[in-house]
């Protein structure tokens, strides 16, 4: 039984110009799944289409059996699917605490406060700077806050768009270690990544997307030893 089931998804920014062209992926509960692929393969568009931020032309997106295409984008997080965008993923004009409290506004005041405290325990760095405007955080801290914001609502699954983008290798390791911790707590993770090596080290399974469709899939171990991986990337990037 899949937690997330995407079938023959066609999506893009302009009608008639699809960027995702019939992609299908599955995510089982408790898994970490990575979507890899060269630049312009449609990875980001795919994850944004699942999140309801990009027009879907056809295909099916089901989360816990529920048809996400019928759900307004702002309802997804209440259905248990949280999304961390790649950039601009915190409210720079709000403090850390306000960012977190806003994320839990629909939980009720008491529950929300409990969850904010839980996030501060999980991310002690954030707790120390709770009154600071999020705009003044460093890149790595912002990423942590964005992940904390998504986790606050105890989602069944979080989706991350290139969590390693713009971070130094040391920070990537830190963020990914945190993600491993999050999975250990039972949260399913779907992530889009450019950083193939780091992603395959963390993920259980991965899909390789080229030209808006999955070309290759398998366990992380299989893909690590797959000879075609590099050529797929080079072929895709060369177009």
């Amino acid at each position: 039984m899949s937690l997330l089931k995407v079938d023959q998804l066609v999506a893009g920014y302009e009608p008639g110009l699809p960027i995702v062209r019939g992609a299908s992926i599955r995510v089982a509960p408790g898994e970490i799944v990575a979507v890899l692929g060269p630049n312009g393969a449609g990875k980001s568009t795919l994850i944004k289409a699942i999140a309801g931020l990009v027009r879907v032309e056809s295909g099916e997106v089901r989360f816990r059996g529920q048809d996400l295409r019928r759900l307004p984008a702002h309802r997804l997080v209440r259905a248990g699917l949280a999304f961390v965008p790649q950039t601009e993923n915190v409210f720079a004009n709000l403090t850390i605490q306000e960012n977190l409290e806003l994320a839990g506004f629909f939980l009720g005041r008491r529950r929300c406060q409990e969850r904010v405290r839980a996030m501060f325990e999980l991310f002690p760095d954030l707790a120390r700077q709770r009154a600071l405007a999020a705009g003044r955080l460093s890149g790595g801290q912002r990423q942590m806050l964005a992940v904390a914001r998504a986790l606050l609502v105890e989602p069944g699954m979080i989706m991350l768009d290139e969590p390693s983008a713009g971070l130094s290798p040391r920070l990537v390791a830190e963020v990914f270690a945190k993600l491993a911790e999050v999975r250990a707590e039972g949260t399913t993770i779907l992530m889009v990544e450019q950083n193939v090596k780091a992603a395959l080290a963390l993920a259980d399974r991965a899909y390789v997307l080229t030209e808006g469709r999955e070309r290759l899939s398998g366990s992380a171990a299989e893909l690590r030893s797959h000879g075609d991986l590099a050529s797929l990337f080079l072929g895709g990037a060369g177009r």
């Binding site: 999304f83 409210f91 629909f106």
Partner: peptide, 14 residues
């Protein structure tokens, strides 16, 4: 304030 800063992120936040 959140919508003023970034409507898309606000949507994602619920």
């Amino acid at each position: 304030r959140a919508v003023a800063h970034n409507p898309q992120l606000a949507t994602v936040t619920g």
